[in-house]
């Protein structure tokens, strides 16, 4: 009883000090561009491409060594928050120096920095790419086919594949060589 009262008192003091608010951790993209994904794992759907310095609020994963991913919320220009997963090693706590995107956007007119995500190619080709494909011996259909593969393999399917082979997230750590 006495310890419960003490715990309550400590909590109240902490709340009073923090003003009743909990400050969420903010992290920043530290690569030229990073894909925000719908789930943990590189096989999940990319939902947003973030450029260097982009800020996001950590929702889950802080201080959790069992996962290599943060679940984050990214506030878009219209105020909407997009939630997704990002690999921890691709972000930093301090805002990195400005990326080159703002300097170069529009330099070539059609080469604007995209914030729209990895599915940009699905939106249609720009004139320069279309011109290149028309002028060269290419197989664009084969590229479209391979680009659609990640969407054809479900998370369950890749997990089953890893489980059958005892690899990936199902690997037997004993069997692995392990880094020295």
């Amino acid at each position: 009883m006495k310890s419960k009262a003490l715990l309550c008192a400590v909590c109240m003091v902490l709340l009073a000090i923090s003003g009743g608010t909990i400050v969420a951790k903010i992290v920043y993209v530290n690569e030229d561009y990073v894909e925000l994904r719908s789930d943990k794992g590189g096989w999940s759907e990319p939902i947003l491409t973030l450029h260097k310095g982009a800020a996001m609020q950590v929702i889950e994963g802080e201080g959790d060594d069992s996962t290599s991913y943060y679940k984050v919320g990214v506030t878009c220009g219209n105020g909407a928050v997009i939630e997704g997963y990002i690999f921890k090693s691709l972000v930093v706590d301090e805002k990195p120096s400005e990326g080159a995107w703002s300097q170069q956007a529009g330099y070539y007119g059609s080469a604007e920095a995209s914030q729209e995500g990895a599915t940009a190619s699905a939106k249609g080709l720009n004139a320069a790419v279309a011109g290149y494909l028309n002028a060269n011996k290419v197989n664009y259909l084969a590229v479209q086919q391979m680009d659609s593969i990640p969407r054809q393999i479900s998370g369950d399917e890749i997990r089953a594949f890893m489980k059958d082979g005892n690899i990936g997230i199902y690997q037997n750590r004993e069997r692995r060589g392990g880094e020295k």
Partner: peptide
């Protein structure tokens, strides 16, 4: 000076798409 500006995300996407289509065009799938 433009030659020294880092390649943007969309430029890299464009280049990769063109290079991929050309590699695929060298062979039968």
């Amino acid at each position: 000076a433009g030659g020294f500006v880092p390649v943007s995300y969309s430029e890299m996407q464009d280049m990769s798409l063109c290079i991929s289509a050309k590699i695929a065009g060298m062979y039968d799938i």
